[in-house]
Nucleic acid binder design. Structure first.
Lengths: 301, 301
DNA sequence: ATAATAGTGTCTGTGAGACATTATCAC
DNA sequence: GTGATAATGTCTCACAGACACTATTAT
């Protein structure tokens, strides 16, 4: 690295120093990646004229080993010493989805001392977004116990206490994960305190049914981030197929943001983010809709 | 954890499994924290009537050991197996600033395989914001080689190539760190590519003078984050003293955002974020200004 | 008086919310 | 025609950019 024969306090050059460096002088933690793989699915619809409802889905793996045997966990695995964290995340993502190129983003690194009962494990969480139509129904070959769960995020309680020096806001968020076979649920308590000018944020699991480790916290965090980014980036398009209608896009925004949007305003805002095509939907029991594609030249207003 | 006598495929209960678990079956990386400690300082001013210019400052430590001996690095250190990552970050922050309660936020975890020539090191970067007035001039006791550097962030080149499948935007950002003794500099190349609907972002050091490891990338990333958050959170108040004038606040926003703001609009936007006091500045060669404090009840519009 | 900053008033354009209206399909 | 969604038109309100204007201090 250095092109001068610099020596340290012991008179060693860099090459000499590195040759004697002992990386195992103290105990190291293990490092893992945990993947939050989201997609959006159409729910079955009995009325052929109505549009299908959209549902936000998360991929989980049933644990076949202790700890949390039989519960559901985020897909993930250890980071090898000869691969970057991002490569490890891509490897995990590929092994679950069989797709090479997917949107993926690092979220947060979780480092509480006892978050894994086996040993000290630091986990770096990544969020990936998949378009359901390009995805195999069966997610991953080897993952026999992988399953998609419908995700719901509900704020069950929120109250603020004002003290002399500042204030504290406590929020309880229920995460509910459901599919035909299983219903998992957890409550995460989020405390944001402002003392003087110092703000602190902490998350803690208050209740957990069927979700392994601290993964309900990771899920809560990821949904908050997804919501936040949906509002000021084009992240949502990663959940869309190549061609989509504007009301499909709107419905995806709606389930992510957890609120209804007005069609007129939504179309105006999205006008520059999409390119129209000549194609239309057909065979719906109502007026066909023009199909659009994402416009990568969009500059985010 | 589990209150049923669940057994795994080998017939072991959780307690039996954990007793035989070998965490050292494979090699582990080292994990460190690196701290980006920012503050805002007044620059000396020769004209007594003019307001002093503000300057964004970053704390760096001169390396006294290989590798990068003699270069400047972010303060940081290894995460011990019995402390959380956040505790390690707080410990480092305290040892540099002698202040217990400071704003601190996890930024990103850097995990390239060869980012440290000694061994495989994964580093979790944290940003901390300090109000200069509550800070000792001498940062930390033991850190004899700690120094504050004025930070400048300049986009030197930016161009977009459109291909058939998507586009690629390349940006070169120069980070310049200066104080009375030293001038450090680096250029970071940031490539954002959109292929189809898949977006990827990568950062790489193109040029580096006097900045150790991949720390210029961490600095570039932190400034981008600070800018982003300045626009939609109250993060900037962590850089302010308890009492401040609105134009001081505006000048802090201006150096962070790197652009000038209109006073009238700024004051309107900030009206609900601050509480006015009865105090005023004095002895300036011009009209005194009302002093304000941060209003923690502010709800971000 | 002067040079500086502090602080206010107001016009204008943009964009989101709200809601009404028209268009178009399968059956 | 009916029932559904698609798509557009338009009013209003909030707010940011722009800039002119007034206020107040130390020297």
């Amino acid at each position: 690295m250095s092109d001068h024969p610099l020596t340290n306090a012991n008179g060693l050059t860099e090459a000499q120093f590195l040759a004697t460096y002992d990386a195992d002088a103290y105990e190291h933690p293990s490092v893992t990646v945990d993947m939050l793989i989201f997609t959006v699915m159409d729910l079955e619809q009995n009325n052929y004229r109505k549009l299908p409802q959209k549902s936000l889905q998360l991929l989980l793996i049933k644990r076949g080993e202790h700890p949390y045997l039989g519960q559901w966990a985020l897909p993930g695995g250890f980071v090898a010493v000869d691969e970057s964290i991002e490569d490890a995340a891509r490897r995990e993502l590929y092994s679950e989805t069989n797709i090479e190129d997917l949107y993926m983003e690092q979220l947060f690194t979780w480092g509480a001392v006892h978050r894994d009962p086996r040993t000290r494990v630091i986990s770096c969480s990544y969020m990936a977004l998949v378009d359901r139509t390009t995805l195999d129904v069966r997610a991953g070959d080897d993952a026999a116990d992988a399953a998609w769960f419908d995700v719901s995020y509900t704020i069950e309680a929120e109250h603020t206490t004002t003290t002399e020096q500042g204030m504290e806001t406590e929020k309880r968020v229920r995460i509910k994960l459901q599919n035909e076979q299983e219903t998992l649920s957890a409550v995460v308590r989020i405390v944001e305190s402002v003392q003087g000018r110092v703000k602190k944020l902490s998350r803690e699991i208050v209740e957990s049914e069927g979700i392994a480790f601290d993964h309900s916290i990771m899920i809560e965090y990821a949904i908050e981030r997804l919501r936040g980014k949906a509002e000021y980036t084009d992240i949502v398009f990663n959940l869309m197929p190549p061609l989509f209608t504007l009301s499909e896009l709107q419905r995806v925004y709606e389930i992510i943001l957890g609120k209804e949007l007005l069609a007129a305003a939504f179309r105006r805002k999205m006008a520059d983010a999409v390119t129209e095509t000549d194609e239309y939907t057909k065979d719906a029991g109502h007026r066909p809709s023009k199909l659009y594609r994402y416009n990568p030249e969009w500059s985010h207003k």
